[in-house]
Every structure is written in structure tokens, then in C-alpha cells.
Design a binder for these strands. Structure first.
Lengths: 125, 125
DNA sequence: TGAATTAATAGTAAATATTACTATTAACAG
DNA sequence: CTGTTAATAGTAATATTTACTATTAATTCA
């Protein structure tokens, strides 16, 4: 049964994600975790990120690039992605209320939606 | 100067994408193109997909999986992704009008946004 | 508290999607 | 038709992520 034991590795990985608002990559999380646990393995980071995402502790963001980013904030919120520097900003706007509309359109079940805005951030323009 | 010449390869790749509404992967496009041009290279498919996307002839959809899908319909529209079978459905709903709100929130420039709904399609439930 | 059990790990290899490289081919201008 | 060079085929390389396996350590329970 996976996800049963609370290991040092899992605890530190979660701590790293929860203590940043930078939407980090797996590799950045790995580098940070190594500061506390020099022998931690990248595979362990990936395994735990997947696990934590599956139980809803964190969110995986795989938008607009070849690699994933992770978000310790799991409340539904939207993002702005700068096409120049790649920075992801959190947006504090009300949730779009279209899930029911879509569900009836496609005659299926809508579980959640994702909304991203793309452009140039104030640093870059 | 790239994108200058209209090659058989480029023409066929574009034709394949425009003649389907299945949001295909690069590999599927490659397989289809091979039927007309058996010696076409996968690298050529990727190069042209990138080129066609950069001039706005097609759209690249890199959401929710480790690979990209492509869309020959470039008018802004939304998608529903089935988490079970992976099928992407086009949605015919009005555009969300939030670009200006977001632009003022982040004090940047918003060029476009993307909106995806996730759930279970009628085939799968 | 101290073994026994087995989930989780480190380290490495493999898989997958995509991009880079290079000699050759072919689109197109003159 | 011919010269120029953009684009190609084929292959190698890159990057991210997953799989594999012997070993380690978290938890159970006597």
C-alpha cells in the first residue's frame, strides 16, 4: 500500500513546496531538498510529487512547456504565465462558473477546469 | 529565412491537421503523412508543426499529458479532456471575458487565455 | 523496547517526446 | 536550365520522467 509511511524525504519535499510561491519544477524542489538531505534521489522527488498530487496535497501544472511545475496551493485558482520569462503568477479572481454548462453540452461529467492567461508580465515589458 | 518554401512535406502535414478534428499527436500526424510520403521524417513533422504554430496556421495543445497535441482550428475555443480515454472535445461556448481584468491585476499585457475542462466523457461513464 | 514486516529509498538504467546536427535534395529565382 | 540555399532524411543527442532492484528505515505488535 503506497503512501502509508511518513518519511523524512516526503516531509521535506512537501515542506519545500508549501514554503514557496514560485511554482517550482521537480528539479528545483530536488535541489532545495538536497540542502537538508544531501543523498535524496531525484526519483524519490518525482515519486512523492506524484503521490502528493494524487491525494490532493499539491497540484501539478503542466502547461506551456516540456516540464511540469508544482503548486502547494490547492484551492482552485488561476494563473498568468509570462511568455518572456516563464514566471507563473497567481491570480486572485473569482472562479468561472461554467462546469455545469459544459457537462450538459458534452453529456459527461466535469470534475474541474483550468484557466491560464498568457502574455507579458510587468517585469518584462 | 525559414518558412519560405512550400514543400510537399509541409503541404501534406498541414492537410492532415486541417482534415481531422481529432486533435492529433505529432506521431499520429507522422503516420498519416507517411501514407502519402513514405520517406517523410519525424523531425520534419516536428519542425513544420512548430513553424505552422508560430505563424498561427495551427495551435499546439500541451495540456494534461507528457506530449503535445495539435489543432487545425485556430479560432479561440475551449476544450474538454476526458481523464479516462484522453479524448479532447471541442466546446462551443462563448469566450470568457477576463483578459482586461487580469491585465490590470498583474499590471502586464494579456495576449490570450486557455480554458480546459476535465472529467469523464459520455463514452466512458 | 526490540525484532519482524514491508513500504520507501538511492542509484542507476530505460523510456518517451522532442530537438539538434549534417550531408543531401529540391524549391524557386533569375 | 542552372545556381543558390532552404528544407529534408536519417541519425544522434537532450531532457524530463518512469521503471527497476538491492538496500534501508518506518511502523507494527509481541
Amino acid at each position: 500500500m503506497a503512501g502509508k509511511r511518513i518519511t523524512k524525504q516526503k516531509r521535506i519535499i512537501l515542506e519545500v513546496i508549501k514554503n514557496t510561491n514560485s511554482h517550482p519544477t521537480a528539479d528545483w524542489i530536488y535541489e532545495q531538498a538536497k540542502k537538508q538531505l544531501p543523498d535524496i534521489s531525484l526519483g524519490t522527488v518525482y515519486r512523492n510529487l506524484k503521490l502528493l498530487a494524487s491525494v490532493g496535497e499539491i497540484m501539478e501544472l503542466n502547461y506551456g512547456s516540456t516540464y511540469s511545475r508544482y503548486d502547494g496551493v490547492t484551492e482552485n485558482h488561476y494563473h498568468f504565465v509570462c511568455r518572456n520569462c516563464g514566471t507563473i503568477y497567481d491570480l486572485d479572481i473569482d472562479a468561472v462558473d461554467l462546469n455545469k454548462t459544459v457537462a450538459s453540452k458534452i453529456n459527461g461529467k466535469v470534475e474541474y477546469h483550468r484557466l491560464e492567461f498568457y502574455g507579458t508580465c510587468c517585469q518584462c515589458q
